[in-house]
């Protein structure tokens, strides 16, 4: 079909990637139904939340306890190195046969397990170092005043490590949201499905919509945890000591010298 010349000159040279993307994204029909954008988005969020929660449960408690003893540095380093060395897709590929073997099938569980494995190292390392590096004077004071070990952990070490712990969760969560996309390759319906199908169907609008939503979701996740961190650590935002002495300080020069 030929397009009249004036029309061509007036707008984009052809429908274009941008408008394909925009029209896919804004077509109401694409959002509804079993495999609509809304359902995929929900599934994507769901698996991310489950994976992050499971990883936190697995990683943070042992890391905190290990950090409390101030031992196990070797283990902590190993965990993070293994985490770095294994690419996410390799993890999914490795988990898949096991999942099939155990009758967990394709889709949700292999993807989720892979995401958990991916999310554990940053959470573990941050929680471990965070707790281990709490000022020893603060801990000594806590113990010396008669706090029980449980209280020292929960009331002193964890709160003071919380900026690092939350950072670990944030890094993991963003990674999980981005990587959950790969679940589409092993039969899990999520935002990644838009990319995979868009690619197969040569539907650039669909593909771009998937990529766009994954990016947005990652940014939202990042922002969410930044906010959580801010709210959880009010003392880090409190005014610091100014350079000049405060009022109740003794005078800088002894008058009776």
């Amino acid at each position: 079909m030929s397009v009249p010349a004036p029309l061509l000159a007036a707008g984009d040279s052809d429908p274009g990637l941008w408008s394909e993307f925009w029209s896919y994204l804004t077509t109401a029909d694409n959002w509804t139904g079993d495999r609509g954008i809304a359902a995929l988005l929900v599934a994507h969020v769901q698996i991310s939340v489950v994976a992050v929660l499971l990883a936190a449960a697995v990683a943070i408690v042992p890391a905190v306890l290990l950090g409390h003893t101030r031992r196990g540095a070797f283990l902590a380093v190993s965990v993070v190195n293994i985490g770095r060395a294994l690419p996410s897709f390799a993890i999914i590929a490795l988990v898949l046969p096991v999942s099939l073997e155990w009758g967990l099938g394709l889709g949700f569980w292999p993807t989720c397990v892979a995401l958990v494995l991916l999310a554990v190292p940053p959470m573990f390392t941050n929680a471990y170092t965070g707790v281990r590096d709490v000022d020893p004077g603060t801990v000594e004071a806590a113990v010396g005043m008669g706090m029980t070990p449980t209280r020292v952990v929960t009331r002193v070490e964890v709160p003071n490590a919380s900026p690092l712990i939350i950072t670990g969760v944030r890094v993991s969560a963003v990674q999980v949201v981005a990587t959950a996309t790969l679940g589409a390759l092993v039969g899990f319906s999520c935002l990644g499905s838009l990319i995979v199908e868009g690619f197969a169907q040569q539907n650039d609008g669909k593909l771009l919509t998937g990529a766009f939503l994954v990016a947005v979701l990652s940014l939202v996740t990042e922002a969410f945890f930044s906010l959580v961190q801010r709210l959880a650590t009010p003392w880090l935002r409190a005014p610091r000591r100014r350079a000049r002495p405060a009022r109740s300080d003794p005078p800088a020069v002894a008058l009776d010298a």
Binding site: D135, P136, G137, T138, V139, A141, A142, M145, T233
Partner: peptide, 12 residues
Amino acid sequence: YVIQQIGLFPHR
């Protein structure tokens, strides 16, 4: 118990 590092709880 009072120590040189003082050891106040920064989060309180």
